Simulated scan of single mutants.
Amino acid sequence: MAEQGTFSMETGLAALRAVGEETRLRLVALLAKSELTVKDATAILGQSQPRISRHLKLLAEAQLIKRYPEGSWVYYRLSEGAEGAFARDLVARLSEHDEVLIADQARFEALRKAKAEEAATYFASKAQTWDQERSLHAADHEVEEAMLRALGDADFRSFLDLGTGTGRLLELLSSRYETALGIDASHDMLAVARANLARNGLSKAQVRHGDIYALSVPPRSFDVVAVHQVLHFLDEPARALAEAARALRPGGRLLIIDFAPHGLEFLRDEHAHRRLGFAHEQMQRWLEGLDLELEQVTDLAPTAQETQKLTVTLWLARDQRVITDMPVVDPNREVA
């Protein structure tokens, strides 16, 4: 068996042959930045879908990339093993001034911006009725009770709610925290959240417009971070989890609430879902990659009669760094 980080000569030759073509090298460079679908790659590279599919198939056969089917879509990303490390190292050695790669990156950014704007438009149109649209899964009170059980009875100092929406979690956990911050990308959602906080007199909580991929909060400043029904809207959920983990204090906990894998394709078109749920194994890999220990997994499954309802899963993970007498950081302080 090959040592960790190495591969056989046969595998190495296959990898070299796979990247020894312009389109495939461009694809590898894009996948080093983000996972993509065939539709994404077709739009960026301006080539036909069959041609892109063939190139991706060759890269997958060389074990440089992995394919992850999700409903009728397939996401591609670089492999995690030695082959993936080889691909990342190769991309890192490409000139940042290469005109072809610069153009590809510009089209990639434009595509990502368009998707973000599409989601923002959807959220803006639904801001006033968002809470009423969660009828596809277990009742809200059941999910909230499961969240409270997962977090336990002990109070904590600071709470961060990513994708806060109407600010419901800020209200739900208000007896547990000293200070709280909710972040959302939708100004319309934040307007609703602010009204709800004011109505409930929650002066110790505030909300802020922000990017879940680039949080403007100090690192290691929150005892609990929640990501409630947000990840399935994102193109890069792992990237958002990395930001959430960065905000955790040593010993802090990350609570994720989202859907288990399902096949309700209409949620893509009608509700702007990017992901059709997350498997236990996938979430565990992401969390372990962030040095977080998965402590608890809870599935809230529908009854046999509720055929159109989804299973909601709660994942609770803990930052395993040792808690020291580190200075207290104001978690609400915005950083550049």
Rank of each mutant, 00 (worst) to 15 (best):
V100N: 01
L101R: 11
A103R: 04
Q105Y: 10
E109L: 08
K113I: 02
A114M: 11
A114S: 11
K115Y: 08
K115F: 07
K115E: 15
E117I: 04
A119N: 13
T121H: 05
Y122R: 02
Y122K: 04
A124H: 09
A124L: 01
D131P: 03
R134G: 00
R134W: 06
R134L: 01
H137Y: 13
A138D: 15
D140Y: 01
H141E: 15
V143T: 12
E144G: 06
A146E: 15
R149V: 10
S158G: 13
F159N: 05
F159D: 07
L162V: 12
G163N: 08
G165N: 02
T166Q: 10
G167M: 02
L169R: 09
L170G: 07
L170R: 03
S174R: 03
S174C: 01
S174Q: 06
S175W: 04
R176Q: 01
D184M: 01
D184C: 00
A185W: 05
S186W: 03
D188R: 12
D188M: 05
M189H: 10
M189Y: 10
A195T: 13
A198Q: 15
A198R: 14
L202F: 10
L202I: 11
V207N: 09
H209M: 14
G210K: 03
I212M: 04
L215M: 03
L215D: 08
V217F: 03
P218V: 14
P219Q: 14
D223T: 11
V224L: 06
V225G: 07
A226K: 01
A226E: 06
V230A: 00
H232G: 04
